Amino acid sequence: MINKFIDLHMHSYYSDDGEFSPSELVKMCHNKGVSIMAIADHNSIKAVDEARKEACKYNIHFINGIEVDCTYGDINLHVLGYGIDYKKVMFCDLEENILRQEKACSVKKLELTRSLGFDIKKEQVDELSKSGIYTGEMFAEILLNDSRYKESELLHPYRSGGSRSDNPYVNFYWDFYSQGKACYTEIIYPSLEDVSKLIAESGGITVLAHPGNNLKGQFELFDEMIDSGLQGVEAFSSYHDAETAKYFLQKGREHNLLVTCGSDFHGKTKPSIELGETTCMIDQCEIQKELEKRRLI
C-alpha cells in the first residue's frame, strides 16, 4: 500500500469555493498524516503566510503554491505554481484583475441562473459570498436546499442517488457554468505562456493541474503545451482514473517533468474528495525526491 503523505493541491477559503482557513487545512493535513503539502488557491497567494507559520508547528514541509486560470488557444486551463516568491506584486495584480472581472460577471450569472427557471434572490447569494463573487457551487447550494425545487427534474441528478450526486455542488458548476455551458460567463485570463513566464520569474515551477479534466478528449495537445513553459504535470488527481494517471505519468517521465499528486480538496463543494486522497499509483518517495531535486522542499 502506498503511503499518502504528499498532497500538493488543496484550497482554503481564499478560493471562492473553499471552506476552511489555511490554519485549519494544516491541522487537517497533520491529522491525516500528510507531511508535504501545498495550498493552491485560485489566483491568490493570501493563504501562504498563515499556512507556513502553522505548518512549522507540525513539522510539515509547506510549499508555496497558487492555482492560476489561464488559456491555451480556446481552452481554459488551471496551472499550478510551486515554490513561487509569493510576495511579488505581480501575484496581487493578477488576483485583482480576475476579481474585478469575476464581480462583473456575477450579476450576469445570477440572471442566467434565473433563466433556467429558478426564483433566486441576490441576497441569498450574498449570504454565501465573502467577496461579492458568485460561483456555480453557491447557486447549487441554494437551489438544492430550497424546498420549492424538491421535484425539479433539472436538479434531480444532483440529489442523493442521482448520477451527479457524488460532488453535487461542483458538478452543478461543471454542467452549467463551465466553458461552453448555459450559464458560462467569459473571463479574460492570461495565456499559458504568460502565466508560465510569471511563475518562472518568481522562481517557481509551472505544473498543469488535473489535465485529464481540462484536456478531456484532447490529450494530444499536452506535448505541444510543454513548449509554452510547462515544467510539471499533476498526473495523480482525484479527477483521474487509472488509465489517465498512467498516461500523464508516462508523459511526465518522457519529457523529464515534475510529476505531482493532489487531491484538489475544497470541503463542502467536493464532499467525496478527502485530503491526501490523490489516487497516486507510485511510491510517493519518488515524488519527494523530485521535489528535493528541484529545491521545493
Rank of each mutant, 00 (worst) to 15 (best):
D17N: 11
Y189R: 12
H42F: 06
R148Y: 04
D17T: 09
I39R: 04
E95I: 04
D175Y: 09
S23F: 00
N31Y: 09
G117E: 00
L154R: 03
L154A: 11
C105L: 14
G65C: 10
H30A: 15
T71L: 02
P190E: 04
Q250R: 09
Q218Y: 09
L258G: 03
R295Q: 12
I199A: 02
K270S: 04
K46R: 13
L198T: 09
S165P: 03
Y177R: 06
N59L: 04
G73Q: 10
L230V: 08
L192D: 05
Q124Y: 08
H156Y: 06
Y82M: 08
L80Y: 01
Y173P: 01
Y82G: 05
D146Q: 02
T244A: 06
Y82F: 14
S165C: 03
L208I: 13
E54I: 11
D227L: 05
T185K: 02
D85T: 07
G276L: 13
P22W: 07
I2T: 09
E254V: 02
S106L: 15
D166N: 04
F91V: 12
V89M: 03
E67D: 12
G180V: 11
G117A: 10
M10Y: 07
K130Q: 07
S178Q: 14
A40P: 01
V89Q: 13
G212S: 10
S178T: 13
I6E: 02
C105A: 14
N3Y: 12
D93Q: 15
L143I: 12
I120H: 11
A182C: 07
Y72P: 11
C70Y: 14
P271V: 12
E153G: 01
K246F: 05
F265N: 06
E123L: 08
V26R: 01
I6T: 08
V195I: 14
M281K: 11
G212A: 02
G252P: 04
P168S: 12
G65R: 10
I98W: 14
D241N: 14
L257P: 03
M90Q: 09
E24R: 14
V107Q: 13
E243M: 01
F176A: 08
Y72K: 08
T278N: 07
R294H: 09
G180M: 06
Y149E: 12
R114I: 07
L154T: 01
K87Y: 15
H61G: 04
L99K: 15
H61F: 13
E141D: 13
H42T: 03
R295N: 10
E102D: 14
S165E: 08
E111T: 15
K46C: 02
A235G: 01
Y134L: 03
S228V: 03
E277P: 00
D85W: 13
L291N: 00
R294D: 00
E137I: 06
K181I: 03
M10C: 10
I36Q: 01
I287Q: 02
L291Q: 03
D126K: 13
N167L: 03
